[in-house]
């Protein structure tokens, strides 16, 4: 649970910073404003959709932090047997990085108003993400063929669970991406798609970072590393 508590502390720190901007020490009962003194609401100038994505990412971070906590707790039992990570995962990681790069390209293009490049970036990003997911399925198949079934060992179960949930989040992202691509397709102005493209790009970078964390955890040498750390500490 320490990982979860650490991440909650980070979220708490963000919340505390935000609260510190809200004049919690003010005395609202003394502040009756004349029409000219009505200050802003204290809302941030960031669009609501961006704030919404930020809050959603906090939820996703909590979800995976809890899973990773559970992963480490379960790892300590005697029956844990780490399975080798298929080489294919390295290739898949490359695909996801390229997908993220493509969306970043689309975002920059949207800011500069080059709509053809936006469309190109979105399509490339989407296709690369689909390829990543196909690659993940292929990796599952390889593992199954080698006899690393879901229920054989908790390490395997966590592998399928974590990669599966990550894939589902990517799938949700693809829906948003399709909606954004549809906007571009219908020929909306750059100003009207800029935000959507930006949010897609942020989500993609987030999922890439998440995948790298998961990939690091799921490769066998992490288990060895954790053992070494534990030995050093005791």
């Amino acid at each position: 649970m320490s990982i979860t508590l650490l991440l909650l502390a980070v979220i708490g720190a963000i919340a505390a910073w935000w609260l510190s901007q809200q004049r919690l020490m003010s005395k609202p009962w003394l502040e009756v404003g004349a029409i000219d003194d009505v200050r802003g609401t204290g809302a941030s100038p960031v669009p609501a959709a961006t704030v919404g994505l930020g809050v959603f990412l906090a939820v996703v971070v909590t979800l995976f932090a809890l899973l990773i906590s559970a992963y480490f707790m379960r790892m300590q039992t005697a029956d844990w047997a780490q399975m080798p990570a298929p080489k294919l995962l390295w290739f898949n990681t490359g695909l996801l990085i390229l997908s993220s790069v493509a969306l970043q390209y689309a975002q920059v293009a949207a800011r500069r108003g080059r709509m053809e490049d936006v469309a190109g970036g979105l399509v490339a990003g989407g296709l690369l993400a689909l390829a990543f997911m196909a690659g993940q399925l292929l990796a599952w198949q390889q593992l199954n063929a080698e006899g690393y079934f879901l229920a054989t060992n908790p390490a395997n179960a966590f592998f399928y669970l974590l990669t599966g949930l990550h894939g589902l989040h990517l799938l949700g992202g693809l829906v948003a991406l399709a909606l954004t691509a549809d906007k571009v397709w219908r020929g909306l102005e750059p100003g009207q798609v800029r935000l959507s493209v930006r949010l897609c790009a942020i989500y993609w970078h987030f999922l890439l970072a998440l995948w790298i964390v998961l990939f690091t955890l799921l490769t066998p040498w992490v288990g060895d590393f954790a053992t070494i750390c534990r030995q050093l500490l005791t």
């Binding site: 809200q22 609202p28 200050r39 809302a43 941030s44 704030v51």
Partner: peptide, 11 residues
Amino acid sequence: LQARTRGMTMM
């Protein structure tokens, strides 16, 4: 967070 009307501060 974002849709409060003018003058409606958190406090």
